[in-house]
Design a protein around this nucleic acid. Sequence first.
RNA 1: GUGGGAUUAGCUUAGUCGGUUAAAGCGCCAGUUUGUGGCACUGGAGAUCAUGGGUUCAAGUCUCAUAUUCCACCCCA
Length: 423
Amino acid sequence: MAKITAPKGTRDILPDEIYKWQYVEKTFSELCELFGYREIRIPTFESTEVFKRGVGDTTDVVQKEMYTFLDKGGRSISLRPEGTAGVARSFIENGMGSLPAPVRLFYNITAFRYENVQKGRYREFHQLGLEAFGSYGPEIDAEIISLLSAFFERLGLNSVKIRINSIGCPVCRKDYNAKLKKHIEPNLTNMCKTCNDRFEKNPLRIIDCKEEKCKAITKDAPALIDNLCSDCEEHLKELKKNLDILSISYEIDRNIVRGLDYYTRTVFEFVSDHVGTQGTICGGGRYDGLIEEFGGTSTPGIGFALGVERLLMEMEAQQIAAIQPKDPMVYIANLGSEGADMAKKISAKLRKVNVSCQVDLMGRSLKAQMKYASKMNFNYTIVLGEEEIKTGKAKIRNMKNTTEKEIILSDIDLLDFSKEINT
RNA sequence: GUGGGAUUAGCUUAGUCGGUUAAAGCGCCAGUUUGUGGCACUGGAGAUCAUGGGUUCAAGUCUCAUAUUCCACCCCA
């Protein structure tokens, strides 16, 4: 029989590392709440249509990377490749357009993409993200970027760079595309196949091509950021101003394009160089047309998603330790069946007052029990045997400094384990 | 979808020119005079050598395919 293993591109997160995840998740949710965001949980899978319309029918994510299948009722279902489309669907379905604006939502999800695995890239991966609906102004763009900046600061991460760009709106993009195509057309035959496809479908993406020959041609191409319509120009200007007010440092990266169709105007990335070539820890932007695309009343939106795996790699690289869980408090070693019974009773008492404790349930030798308590980093050990049961008294041993103190067993739940027990 | 490296015990690895019972450290379990951990010592369990073919008297070792993993292209978080 073949070995059973986790599917390609998935992995187990084991107890020894889970505290890092919990730390990051907790830091994120606390910060989001400080900014007025409330958590939303959306389905792991949606009708395929949600992603086709939301993320974009022509994107690689939808065309090549989605886990799509027919369910037993013949519905086309897809595992979510990202969070925004599902949140937007939920926004409309639950009438959130009539809530006081802006509607601020955050989420913690797994997402799925059928891609080849490499550093910082998995088929099932985790995203922390948020979306804000209902505000056109650049103020909220700046607020979101400042939230992210505060998040990295709280984690102690420096050297994560903020890059922003504007990719305009349908109005300026139309003019710009024409200009860009004019610039590229004479050299089109020298460009890669993908760029030739993009030339018709989405010329903007040609700027993003990594192939040397294409880069050479696009090097002097007009940049969208220099060809914005007056409204988009103003938006970007105000965004910069707001970031300055918040003392956020950033750089303009005119090459950020984003591969998801819904983005308009502001796009941004938080980039590190510790995650191999998958340096984008976080990506996001504005999507003023998305809700309308879904058939809702026109509502602007902006959001981001950050890759938890990549974030943890960055923390690892910068040697930033997550807050570790506390060591377990009391181990109750016991001998004989009476000792075992007493140990069970005492453990129940301790748990009632929220003291973490464990009892030997395997009838092991005292020595083996002590070894276990030591290896599991218990703070204290109590031994219960014939003598302790007879006298009602026992010694509590501080495992960190090997001192012992006598205690009355009937009063054990009155001990203050929140402080170091002086011995 | 396209390249390149890797795969031997739970983990990290050794394994000569193809040669007989696959080795070590860590970890796990137990013991070192019977009720006290960390150190030391002794012993034990644990491996279809990723899977499936092929070459050979003989394959962990050579060869092909597949899977997985790592890295890169592409794309994205």
